[in-house]
Nucleic acid binder design. Structure first.
Lengths: 184, 184
DNA sequence: TAAAATAATGTCACAAACTGACATTGGGAT
DNA sequence: ATCCCAATGTCAGTTTGTGACATTATTTTA
């Protein structure tokens, strides 16, 4: 196992056991059998060890969008569907996602980091949509889609009732309800 | 002048002159004529000195919403109007807002902090809307409204053409265009 | 295979951000 | 004038993060 992975495993373990703020980079490095210095070579800061820098979600979502331009004309619906399309990412590893989420919610620094990741996600979706739609419209749709995704995620966390895709759909319907009010 | 204000002034000056990362808390404190320790008593961290902790915007926006429930039935439109209602906050001090924005955009830490502030804003709007509307619908409307606000802010930064309220309206119209596609 | 280049890790020294504990001061209230 | 309280200072220490250079694996190539 590469030291990067070892550090991620060690960090996850310690964060769970004693909380994010109570574990030092020193401890993580020791548990992983490396030096503090190599921690900071793999991750730009302490919080970085929890965040996937490669933007896997963004790539999957963008791929879905480019693959489905033809069957779906409405930018927002397309973007929302793209989030539903990655529901396996969540449903298949509920345990891990929940644990991770709990750590993040326990600390403001981590929440901020998560928020920044959401901006990257918005960009991915915006770029994917921009191929076919007007760029400003794409950005707005992307922003709305990510908000819908986020609300769906929160609901998915709270209850075991529905799968991720269903929660996304539920929030999308809430959006339809919201917009229908325009024409009352 | 209270030391808190002195620190804010000193920080703003130094951040402008030599950038956020290149100025130390030490320097800010010295310029303000106090100790590093009192800086950290006033602000929870270095970035805090740039952020208004009292959520003035949230309060103003929430106030507008509660004051205008009767004249406006549509939650999103109401929320968006509430942002237009504080346009003086921006138009009246373009200089300062631009300078501040430039500092924030120069550093990831500050961007994250700004993002967290937006969450607080979302909560304010959600709570205000919840008095009259369903709570989930309120949250969705609040999230969308804040995204619209943010896009309007970006456009307002980029061009001197329109006032803040006009930019908000412009993005809202973009939203209408987006939703109309539902019924194509 | 041996030598040489390259990548990963270690060592060390240090700056900057932050905190806890306790001392000092500087105005208001009495 | 004195007492009180809040704000500030002092100081010592922890943790995060970085630069510079040494050492050790790993891979390339002669």
């Amino acid at each position: 196992m590469k030291s990067k992975e070892k550090l991620q495993v060690a960090a996850a373990k310690l964060f769970m056991e004693k909380g994010y703020e109570n574990t030092t980079v020193q401890e993580i490095a020791s548990l992983a059998g490396v030096t503090e210095r190599t921690f900071f070579r793999q991750f730009k800061d302490k919080s970085d060890v929890l965040f996937d820098t490669s933007n896997t979600m963004g790539q999957r979502v963008a791929a879905f969008i480019t693959d489905n331009f033809d069957v779906e004309q409405k930018p927002l619906k397309l973007a929302v569907d793209s989030f539903a399309s990655i529901s396996d990412y969540f449903d298949d590893s509920r345990e891990r996602v929940l644990a991770r989420n709990q750590i993040i919610q326990s600390n403001p620094d981590l929440q901020e980091r998560e928020l920044l990741k959401r901006q990257v996600l918005i960009e991915s979706v915006t770029n994917a949509l921009s191929v076919k739609f007007d760029s400003e419209l794409s950005e707005l749709a992307a922003r709305f889609a990510v908000e819908i995704f986020h609300m769906a995620f929160k609901k998915w966390i709270e209850s075991t009732e529905k799968g991720f895709a269903e929660q996304v759909l539920a929030v999308y319907q809430l959006y339809e309800k919201l917009t229908l009010l325009i024409f009352e």
